[in-house]
Simulated assay, not measured.
Amino acid sequence: MSSQTAAAEPVHVESRDQFEELTDEGIVLVDYWADWCGPCKMLEPTVEELADEVEDLLVLKVDVDEHQALAGEAGVRGIPALQFYADGEEAERLVGVQEKGDLLRVVESLQ
């Protein structure tokens, strides 16, 4: 897959293979969430804004109910959880509702 250049809608992860392929290069924000999670719903607009506004950032959404094994292997113990990847390596992890500015600072530090 080629590097992302334009901002886009978040991608809902459907499989482990897709997850591994999409986190392999560039800057990727992975949002672990669940439909029943109130804080996840509070964070969702912020994550969507980042996906829409920040070039060269790919946003993935992983439903922890649908992908329990993937979330477990990633060490996710509480949601919402945000993992930032830079060229296939985890670079940062945040848990809980976050301010947009804090997320932007992480992305900028990875660019």
Rank of each mutant, 00 (worst) to 15 (best):
M1L: 12
S2M: 15
S2N: 09
Q4Y: 01
T5Q: 14
A7K: 12
A8G: 12
A8W: 00
E9Q: 13
E9S: 15
P10F: 03
P10E: 09
P10Y: 02
V11A: 07
H12V: 14
E14R: 14
E14H: 03
D17L: 11
D17M: 02
Q18V: 14
Q18N: 04
Q18L: 08
E20N: 12
E21L: 08
L22N: 06
T23P: 03
D24M: 08
D24T: 12
E25N: 15
E25R: 15
G26N: 10
L29A: 13
L29P: 00
L29T: 06
L29V: 09
L29D: 11
V30S: 05
D31E: 12
Y32L: 12
A34L: 05
D35M: 13
D35G: 10
D35Y: 11
W36L: 04
C37A: 02
C37N: 06
C37G: 10
G38H: 09
P39C: 10
P39N: 06
P39Q: 06
P39Y: 05
C40R: 04
L43W: 08
E44I: 07
P45I: 07
T46A: 08
T46E: 09
T46F: 03
T46M: 03
E49H: 15
L50D: 11
L50R: 11
L50H: 11
L50P: 10
A51Q: 11
A51T: 09
A51F: 03
A51G: 13
E53M: 01
E53A: 12
E53P: 10
E55N: 14
E55C: 00
E55V: 07
D56K: 15
L57N: 05
L57D: 03
L57G: 05
L58H: 05
L58S: 14
L58R: 15
V59E: 03
V59Q: 00
L60T: 07
L60A: 03
K61D: 08
D63Y: 02
D65G: 11
E66W: 02
E66I: 08
H67R: 10
H67T: 09
Q68S: 15
A69D: 14
A69I: 13
L70F: 10
A71E: 06
A71M: 04
A71D: 00
E73R: 13
E73Q: 14
G75F: 08
G75H: 09
G75A: 07
V76Q: 01
V76P: 07
R77G: 15
R77T: 14
R77V: 14
I79Y: 02
I79T: 10
I79D: 04
A81M: 11
A81K: 06
A81C: 14
L82S: 12
Q83W: 07
F84I: 07
F84W: 03
D87V: 05
G88W: 00
G88H: 06
E89G: 06
E89Y: 01
E89K: 06
A91Q: 01
L94A: 13
L94Q: 12
V95G: 03
G96D: 02
V97T: 07
V97W: 04
Q98K: 07
E99Y: 12
E99W: 00
K100S: 05
D102R: 15
D102H: 06
L103N: 11
V107K: 12
L110C: 11
